[in-house]
Amino acid sequence: MTDPQFIELLRKGDETAFHQLVEDWKDRIYNTALGLVQQAEDAEEITQDVFIIAWKSVQQFRGESSIQTWLYKIAVHQSLDCIRRRKRKKRFGFLVPLFGSEEEQEQEPGNFLHPGVQLEKKQEAQVLFKAIRKLPEQQRVAYSLQKIEGLAIKEIAQVLETTDGAVEALLNRAKTNLQKILSSYYQTHRDD
C-alpha cells in the first residue's frame, strides 16, 4: 500500500490502519526519542504522544512529505520539548521546595546507556552520551539521527527542513564540539 492510500485510511479513522502505523514505526520512534532525551520513561511517553498527535492531526497532513519524515518531525519536536522542559525545571529547581513537592523535581539523566550499545564499548558510550547532551539542539538532533537512528543526510535534512549541505555542516560542528568536550573530559579524568 502506498503512503497516500495509507494516509487516506487514517483520515477515515480506520483503527486497523492506526494499529499498523504504531506497529510499523514504534521501534524507530522510540529509538529516536531515547537517543535524544536519554531516558527510557520519557522516551516511552514521547513515543505514545507522537502517535496520538499523528492520529489527531492526520487531517492536516497534506502528504507533502513521507510518513517517515512526518513521524520523525513530531518525534524530534516532542523530544526537544521534553529537553527544554527539563532544563527549565532544573533552572527553577530552587523554587520547588518552596512551591511544590520534591517529587516534581526533574531528574537529569545520569550515566545513560543506550541498550543497543555493544558491551565492550559501554564505558566510552556513557561518556559520549554525556557529551552529546552538551551540544546545541540542532547539532544534537542531527548527530543522534545519524549515529543512533542511522538516517542518511538527505533524510535528516527532510526532518530538519533544511538542505543537505546544512546538515553536513551541523554534523561537522557536532563532531568538532564533541571532540573538544571529550578531550577536556579525559584530561580531567585521566583514570577513566
Partner: peptide, 20 residues
C-alpha cells in the same frame, strides 16, 4: 587523551536500535 577521544567517538558504531 586522543586515543580515548577516538574510542569514545566510535563507541556508537554498530549500535543496535532500542525496541519499544
Amino acid at each position: 587523551v586522543q586515543d580515548q577521544v577516538a574510542k569514545a567517538m566510535s563507541s556508537l558504531d554498530g549500535i543496535q536500535p532500542a525496541t519499544a
